[in-house]
Amino acid sequence: MEVRTIKVFTTVDNINLHTQVVDMSMTYGQQFGPTYLDGADVTKIKPHNSHEGKTFYVLPNDDTLRVEAFEYYHTTDPSFLGRYMSALNHTKKWKYPQVNGLTSIKWADNNCYLATALLTLQQIELKFNPPALQDAYYRARAGEAANFCALILAYCNKTVGELGDVRETMSYLFQHANLDSCKRVLNVVCKTCGQQQTTLKGVEAVMYMGTLSYEQFKKGVQIPCTCGKQATKYLVQQESPFVMMSAPPAQYELKHGTFTCASEYTGNYQCGHYKHITSKETLYCIDGALLTKSSEYKGPITDVFYKENSYTTTIK
């Protein structure tokens, strides 16, 4: 009895394709271990004539594949690729409408935090270190965002349907971005203890939790000093293409032309909904596939993004 075979390709990165001759009487799992086709788990399936010449994702289970996976995804987590594939199996079914010149995501599976993050990423200057993220990001900007969303979920250790947080998501993504040249110098002034300067680099240099107003941050924000008295913390120097200011959701007025974009969060910790506000020729609110415009805006804002380049204080 002759062994019926077909020729397929296996890959971990969709760049390096490895030619395989597979036995049609055995499952993919018996031949390769966990195997995925377009995100779908085909591990328990036997090869079919229609699979001839198709590319299958496999887990990096030998040295060659491990090197290829690390170079593309910059992670050695053995569960990463499987999590990416199972997320992709959902995100490829989502709709990605162009809204006001940006790629958004039609609401499904509690994905409003991903839509808000995706919209924000198209408006701030950011370059990702893992080629996987950078490639998928370019495709997302062009309207094909399924891979990018699935990668975000995998890097953030999230599953489809789980509630997510924009600030946490951005923080994970910033860790995989090139923020080497970003720098922030802060000064804390206390009447009792004097003053202390701190220099922050990388992710810490672009994120701040405690106030939404970048102007206020430049002037000074009140913080408790270690001595128990009130101290003032203010920005001395900022070198970065953008800054992200966050605070627990509270009524906040966004003035046209003073910011790049913002995240609105309605609801409580267990259950809520994100919308995205962007400042173009007027203010726009993007909620999944829905767009509304207004000249002014007041609502429960939790993150505001500002364009920056270089700032030095005039406070002496």
Rank of each mutant, 00 (worst) to 15 (best):
N110C: 06
M209L: 11
E168L: 11
E308L: 09
Y28T: 05
A150M: 07
V236D: 05
C182S: 05
I124P: 01
E68P: 05
V166G: 08
L163D: 04
T5R: 13
I277S: 00
E71L: 03
L283A: 03
W107S: 07
T260N: 00
T232E: 04
N309V: 13
D287W: 05
S50R: 11
M85S: 01
K183E: 05
Q195P: 12
S25H: 12
G257S: 05
A69V: 10
Y252P: 01
C271M: 13
L186M: 14
V206H: 04
F70H: 09
G82T: 14
S25P: 05
Y208D: 01
K93S: 11
I6Q: 05
A231K: 04
F148Q: 02
F9K: 11
T313K: 14
C285T: 13
C193K: 15
A40H: 12
A108L: 07
T266F: 06
H176Y: 13
F80E: 03
V221F: 08
S246W: 01
I152S: 01
L179I: 00
Y311Q: 05
N110H: 04
L81P: 07
L37Y: 14
I15V: 10
T312H: 14
D38F: 11
P97L: 12
F259M: 02
H90D: 10
V42P: 04
C156I: 09
S240G: 03
Y208N: 03
F148V: 07
P241D: 07
Y306G: 01
I124K: 02
F174L: 11
K93P: 08
P60K: 07
H74K: 09
V12P: 12
D109E: 12
Q216G: 06
I15D: 00
R167T: 03
I45H: 11
P131E: 00
V160K: 06
D41V: 07
L102G: 10
M209N: 14
R4F: 11
M209Q: 11
Q251T: 15
H51D: 14
Y96V: 04
C225Y: 02
T302C: 09
F217M: 07
N111E: 05
K46D: 13
G202D: 03
G101M: 15
K293Y: 07
D303K: 00
Y84A: 03
A69N: 09
E296A: 14
N14K: 00
G53K: 12
F217T: 05
Q122P: 05
N129K: 15
L88Y: 13
K298V: 15
N268H: 07
G161V: 01
N157F: 06
Y138I: 15
A146Q: 10
V304D: 00
F128W: 14
Q270A: 13
L81G: 06
D135W: 09
A140W: 06
P300G: 00
E52D: 11
K307E: 07
H18N: 08
D23H: 12
G228E: 01
Q175M: 11
E253C: 08
V189N: 11
Y172I: 15
T192L: 10
M245Q: 05
V12Y: 12
E204F: 06
Q20M: 10
E296V: 15
G288F: 01
K316Q: 15
T19A: 15
A262L: 02
N14Y: 08
K255I: 12
K307A: 11
E52C: 12
V206C: 08
G194S: 06
L179M: 08
R184Y: 00
G161N: 03
K218W: 08
N147G: 10
K307G: 09
L173A: 05
C271H: 15
G53W: 13
S213K: 07
S310H: 15
G210L: 02
F242H: 01
V42I: 14
M245F: 14
Y73L: 07
Y113K: 06
D41L: 11
Y274L: 04
C193F: 02
E264L: 00
E71F: 07
A154Y: 02
H74T: 09
G194E: 06
K229L: 11
N111V: 03
Y297A: 02
D135E: 14
L254Y: 00
Q216C: 05
T91E: 04
F9Q: 14
S240P: 01
A154Q: 02
K158S: 01
F32P: 04
T292A: 08
T55E: 06
T27F: 12
P248I: 07
I223H: 12
E125Q: 14
G288E: 01
I277A: 00
Y84V: 04
R4A: 12
N61H: 11
N14W: 09
P130M: 03
T35M: 15
A117N: 04
M207I: 04
T64C: 13
L291P: 01
K233V: 14
T75M: 12
K218M: 02
T116H: 02
T10Q: 09
L133R: 01
A250D: 13
H74D: 06
K229W: 03
R83L: 09
L235A: 03
H273D: 00
A250W: 06
K183Q: 12
H18S: 08
V58T: 11
V99K: 00
Q175E: 08
V243E: 01
D23C: 13
G202S: 02
L17S: 09
T159H: 11
P130C: 11
Y72G: 05
E239D: 07
V12G: 09
G272P: 09
F70M: 14
G33I: 05
N178W: 01
S295D: 15
L200V: 10
K218C: 04
C261I: 11
Y57M: 13
I6W: 08
V67H: 15
E253K: 07
C271N: 13
T260A: 09
W94F: 00
F148I: 06
Y306W: 03
A87D: 00
I277H: 00
T91G: 04
L186I: 15
D303T: 00
T116F: 04
E52I: 12
V99G: 02
K127H: 10
E296N: 10
Y155L: 05
L114D: 06
G39H: 08
A231I: 03
E144H: 12
C149S: 05
L119V: 02
D180E: 14
L37H: 14
V243F: 04
V166F: 08
H51T: 07
K293R: 08
I124Q: 05
D13G: 10
L186E: 15
K293C: 12
T198G: 04
V3D: 14
L235Q: 08
C285K: 00
T75I: 11
A146S: 14
K93Y: 11
Y57H: 12
G161P: 02
F242E: 01
R139W: 05
N178C: 09
C156L: 06
R184H: 04
N129S: 08
A146T: 00
L121F: 07
D135V: 09
G210Y: 01
T35P: 01
Y36V: 04
Y234K: 09
Y28F: 14
E52S: 13
A132T: 03
M24P: 14
C149W: 03
L114W: 02
E68A: 06
N110L: 00
T282M: 10
G228F: 08
C261H: 00
E162T: 07
H273N: 06
N268C: 08
H48T: 13
G202L: 04
T314Q: 15
K255D: 00
T43P: 05
M24E: 13
G257F: 00
T266K: 07
I6Y: 08
Y155P: 03
K7L: 12
A108N: 07
L291C: 15
L118E: 00
A150H: 07
F174H: 06
A262T: 04
L254Q: 05
S79A: 14
C112Y: 03
Y84K: 05
L283D: 04
V67M: 14
L235S: 03
E281M: 00
V160M: 02
I301A: 00
V42N: 06
P97K: 08
I124E: 08
E125S: 09
A231E: 05
M85G: 06
P78Y: 10
N147C: 11
K95E: 07
F148Y: 05
R4G: 13
G161I: 03
S263F: 01
K106V: 11
Y96M: 07
G101F: 02
T258E: 14
K7D: 14
T282A: 11
N100W: 00
R66M: 15
M209E: 07
F56Q: 02
Y265S: 01
G194M: 07
K92G: 07
L212R: 01
K219Q: 13
D38M: 12
V188I: 10
G220L: 03
T199Q: 09
H176C: 06
Q122I: 00
P78W: 10
T302V: 07
S310V: 15
L126D: 03
Y73N: 07
R4M: 14
G53T: 11
V42K: 09
Q31Y: 14
G288R: 01
T192Q: 14
T169M: 08
K218T: 05
E239H: 09
Q270C: 12
V203D: 01
S279D: 14
Y208S: 04
L235E: 06
T302K: 01
T64S: 13
T226H: 14
K218D: 04
L17A: 15
K46G: 10
